[in-house]
Amino acid sequence: MVRRVSSTRAFARLAPHVVPALDRSVHRLSGGKYLVSGLMLPGVMLTATGARSGLPRRVPLACMPESGGTWVLIGSNFGRDGHPAWTANLLAHPDARIDWKGERVEVTARLLTGDEREAAWTAALRFWPPYATYQSRVTREIRLFRLAGRRP
């Protein structure tokens, strides 16, 4: 049922205004351990440098954890037009930080392309099938990033 609801246009209109605000509050109150959206999908709190402002920008995001200690972030923007701002931030400033299950991890983001992107996209669709609906609504190719830990 959650997958069906998250694929609707109504969810795409409402969720971007409600879910991040709830996630930020719960994240702060739980000392960085929890996100409301984590009830549906694993999630991270991404802190990246703003592409234009140069200021730290924090955004809660669903993620696809991978074996080996990497994470894939999917720039679906809930199936709305336009790439989400955090993807431009990572393109401009790939060194970032995530809060993952109460731990802060310094990461470097890399935009996935070609065969590597196709493999990650296939895995993402198995992981959360509504991503296919999001992609069908937009003409842009949804950006995927792989985050790998780094020493600060």
Rank of each mutant, 00 (worst) to 15 (best):
L73I: 13
P20F: 06
G82Q: 10
A92P: 08
I74T: 14
G82H: 12
V19N: 00
A96S: 09
V18R: 10
V72C: 03
S30M: 12
P94S: 06
S76F: 10
G54K: 11
P65L: 11
N89W: 06
D23Y: 06
W86L: 01
H17G: 15
G79K: 11
L22S: 13
V44F: 05
L29A: 03
V18E: 02
N89Q: 03
A21H: 10
R28G: 03
A48I: 02
T49K: 15
A92V: 09
A92W: 06
P20E: 10
N77S: 12
V36E: 00
P42N: 06
D81P: 15
V19M: 12
R80E: 02
R28Q: 13
R13F: 11
V18S: 05
G38S: 02
G50P: 05
P56H: 10
L46K: 04
G82N: 14
F78D: 04
L61W: 09
M64A: 07
S25K: 12
S37A: 02
M40A: 10
H17Q: 08
T70Y: 06
S76H: 08
F78P: 03
L41G: 00
L14M: 13
V19L: 11
S53A: 12
W86F: 01
P20T: 01
R52C: 04
S67R: 13
A51D: 09
S67H: 11
G38M: 09
L91D: 07
P60F: 10
H93F: 07
K33D: 03
G69Y: 06
P20V: 07
H93K: 14
S76Q: 07
L22G: 14
G82L: 14
T49F: 04
H93G: 08
